[in-house]
Simulated scan of single mutants.
Amino acid sequence: MSSSGSSAKSSPATGFMIDLYWTVIPVMLVHYYASHPLAEYNWWRSRVVMLLTWVWSLRLTHNYFRREKWQWGAREDWRFTDMKGQYGKHWWWVSFFAVYASQQVFLIGVCLPLYVIHSVDGPLNIWDFVAIFVCISGIAIAFFADTQLHEFVTRNEKLKELGKPVVANLDRGLWHYSRHPNYFGEQLWWWGLVVFAWNLGNGWTFVGSLINSMCLAYVTKLVEDRMLKQAYRAEAYRLYQKTTSVWIPWFKSSAIAEKDKDT
């Protein structure tokens, strides 16, 4: 999953293993399902989904290494660092269930459509193209949102090195219309896969993406709470919350912004 915040310096093991785990397993699963002796599927649908999965994986992998300054597992996700401090000496076993075991469930759940695509044969129809459009849109939105976030963080780091005041909040590009466009794009990708499965008569696979979205909603709250704890950006971020959609890109709520300025 993508993050709006920076990572804290700590033991690299947890953040390193889990972040890259997500970029690899879906690719491995889609090829496993396609090569299984009992697999039954439409060749074109299978190849399109394989290609999309590779593109999605490369985007996520590129963003991980770019965010970590092209280092391999150098930093740990700040959320895991906070949890480590919370659980103390019990973290070694809590992390097994809260981080590693739960990730297996999430990954199998969100990848259920990949299984359906390779277990049901059916001709291509308009819904396949809708699914392709949704998946590509999700990948593109996540890429541009993460690129804009990376450029924002890089500019602030340079300003800090020069002893100049940093910009409190990113409110340009896709971030002008959504507080978490990178999260929105990532979720759009997974729900696009659900459309493929639904079209093949297995709409129940939405459960995996729904649970993933619910977990990301909790992560969103953690990220926003973290923003509000940072004194230099708290006021700007409160206004940002009042005027900008959480996930789905939408127009600014200018009426609320004007009201807030007048009070």
Rank of each mutant, 00 (worst) to 15 (best):
S6P: 11
S6A: 13
P12M: 15
W22K: 12
W22M: 15
I25Q: 06
I25R: 10
P26R: 00
A34E: 04
P37L: 00
W43G: 04
W43M: 11
V49I: 08
V49W: 02
R59W: 01
T61D: 03
T61E: 09
T61Y: 08
N63T: 09
F65T: 01
K69A: 08
Q71G: 10
Q71A: 10
W72R: 04
G73R: 09
A74T: 03
R75N: 12
E76H: 10
R79T: 14
W92Q: 10
V99S: 07
V99Y: 11
A101G: 06
S102G: 09
Q104F: 15
F106C: 11
V116M: 05
H118M: 12
V120L: 11
I126S: 14
D128E: 12
A131R: 03
A131Y: 05
F133E: 09
S137G: 08
S137W: 10
S137D: 07
S137I: 13
A142H: 02
F143D: 13
H150L: 13
E161W: 03
L162P: 02
G185F: 00
L188M: 06
W189S: 02
W190M: 04
W190E: 03
G192C: 01
F196E: 11
A197E: 05
N199E: 09
L200W: 01
W204K: 02
F206Y: 12
N212Q: 15
A217H: 10
L222N: 11
D225E: 12
Y232L: 05
R233T: 01
Q241T: 06
Q241F: 09
S245E: 03
V246Q: 11
W247D: 07
I248W: 08
I256W: 07
E258K: 14
T263V: 14
